[in-house]
């Protein structure tokens, strides 16, 4: 029983660490890194769902030698996560470009320091 959920538990732990990094760190880059971790953990969750024990990658095997049809893992979660990875990198790129501009106009990438400024949002 417990071993069956091991992947999900790892997902939960990664997710918690990522979320904590996002919320607790004031450095904007660190926040972005935390956000990436947070997203990666969700990828693990989806991919774990699609796995079938003893299964193989969902690519048709042409020459079946032992006469047993192979068991394939579910391709759907893979597709979803491919999309999610793309969304993740898109978000990262946009976030980092904002960080660069923030650093240029505020001279710092520390959220606390920006908040201390007079017009710091």
């Amino acid at each position: 029983m417990s071993i069956g959920f091991f992947n999900y538990w790892v997902f939960i732990i990664l997710l918690m660490i990522g979320l904590y990094t996002v919320m607790s760190r004031s450095n904007l880059i660190k926040k972005m890194i935390g956000l990436s971790l947070f997203q990666i953990s969700v990828f693990l969750f989806y991919i774990s769902m699609g796995k079938v024990s003893g299964g193989t990658a969902p690519i048709v095997v042409e020459n079946i030698t032992d006469g047993v049809a192979p068991v394939y893992s579910n391709p759907l979660p893979h597709v979803l996560i491919l999309t999610a990875i793309v969304v993740g990198i898109a978000t990262t790129a946009l976030g980092l470009s904002l960080v660069v501009r923030i650093r240029e106009s505020f001279g710092t990438i520390d959220e606390d320091e920006i908040l201390e400024m007079k017009d710091g949002a």
């Binding site: 904007l28 969750f45 769902m49 505020f106 017009d119």
Partner: peptide
């Protein structure tokens, strides 16, 4: 210039929100 920090803040919070949604959909799936 605060538009930049506002956008960044929205990006962080918005992405967390969207990812929460994704987890929810994952659980349903």
């Amino acid at each position: 210039r605060r538009a930049l920090t506002a956008a960044f803040q929205y990006l962080i919070i918005g992405t967390v929100g969207a990812t929460f949604y994704l987890i929810g959909v994952g659980l349903i799936y």
